[in-house]
Simulated scan of single mutants.
Amino acid sequence: MRPAILIHGPTASGKTELSIQIARKYDGEIVNADSMQVYRDLKVISARPDEAEMADVPHHLFGHVPASERYSTGQWLEQARPVIEAIQKRGKTAVVVGGTGLYLLALTQGLSEIPPVPEETRHEVLEIAKSEGVRGLKIRLQAVDPEAAARIDDNDRQRLSRAYEVWLATGTPLTSFQSKRSKPVLNEDEWLGIALTPPRAKLYSRIDKRFEGMLMEGAMEEARQLVAQDIDPDLPAMKAHGMPWLSAFIRGEIDAALAAENAKRDTRRYAKRQFTWIGRQFPFWPRIPSTEIPTRMRVVSALYKEVDR
């Protein structure tokens, strides 16, 4: 069985291009590990690989979920497991690529079995976040789950909300569930993980240029179609990079220039948080700071020789 190759990195760091090159070299098939690229309605906004990029390499778990659904890490893991096993049975290399670190952790470390959180609880926590801010969430979480509060960044609204939701819904701290994990899909000797860590200035510039390109490729039209569906704005698909600001423009609340500038700013901030996440959650994954594909491929090839023995 060929070891899988896992590619992580911040948004716009070039994961798609590298994954295709790796799949071509190692007779691989690509498996999506990006929580936004699973959504059918977010082709442009999520920077999903286009038809040309997917033409000669099989791709899995891209664009198969309606934006009206709330897709979880547990669902992804349940779907990714048989896909990866099938790729391996065919004698090919599974290339798992994405910026959603929690997916990759679940794949290699297992996943905690956390009961589903009722929608009314989600809305309750959302209202708390709106009225008290992330600081208020942090204070509330410190009182009921100090371990989770200490581990989660002060500005990570999503993870703070998630931890507090779990406590409200179950009366049990999130850390109690996290100590009990399912068996990982990939054992320690069955995969190679790499993290792309390009220079911040280059990455931020690329983020800005990519968003401008998205607008030219139909991001605004895609956003209009989503807004027309009257989807709950609290669903994950409606929080994709730029989507809240494009929605505000479509509703006439802000002008186009402000929508674009805010979208770029928020995406840069998200990339910064991804760097922090990589540093904390993937401390032993080899880093590849180069932005050049030939250099990246040389590093991957050298590392893969060590695990594929």
Rank of each mutant, 00 (worst) to 15 (best):
E261N: 11
M220V: 10
Q281F: 14
A219E: 03
I114E: 02
S176M: 12
A302E: 06
F177W: 14
D266G: 01
I254E: 05
I87R: 09
Y103S: 11
V96L: 02
S176P: 04
G171L: 09
W245T: 03
K138P: 03
L235K: 07
L104F: 14
A23I: 12
A163K: 01
L174T: 02
I152R: 03
T11S: 15
L203F: 10
M243E: 07
P58M: 14
K305N: 14
Q229I: 05
W167Q: 04
Q88L: 14
P66G: 08
L137I: 10
A143L: 11
A163D: 01
A169R: 09
R224H: 11
P58H: 05
D41W: 02
Q88N: 14
P286A: 07
G74S: 11
P184I: 01
V307S: 02
D34T: 04
G242H: 04
M36S: 13
T172D: 06
M297N: 00
M214F: 11
I152A: 11
V44H: 07
T197N: 05
Q229G: 01
D145Y: 01
Q21C: 08
L192A: 02
S112K: 02
P66A: 10
G242A: 04
L192T: 03
V65Q: 06
T121D: 08
P289L: 00
L303K: 00
V134L: 06
M243D: 03
E78D: 11
M238T: 00
T267A: 14
G110Y: 05
F249H: 11
A271I: 04
K180S: 07
A33Q: 03
Q109S: 04
V299Y: 04
A163E: 00
A149Y: 10
A106Q: 04
A106C: 13
M238V: 02
A33N: 04
T170R: 00
E190A: 13
A201S: 12
Q158I: 15
P294L: 02
K43Y: 03
E78K: 14
I22C: 04
A150G: 08
K239N: 07
V117M: 08
Y304G: 07
E78S: 15
G101W: 12
V31R: 09
Y304I: 04
A263P: 12
A129D: 08
L77C: 09
K202T: 14
V96G: 00
E127H: 15
W245H: 15
D230P: 00
R151E: 14
D308P: 09
E53T: 15
A94H: 06
H59E: 09
A23K: 05
R81C: 10
A237N: 09
S247D: 03
V117F: 10
D27Y: 08
E306R: 09
D208E: 13
E119V: 15
S179P: 00
A55L: 06
T175N: 07
D234W: 13
Q21E: 15
E119F: 11
Y304H: 08
S247Q: 05
P82H: 08
R206C: 11
G252P: 08
A129M: 15
R280Y: 14
A195E: 08
G279C: 10
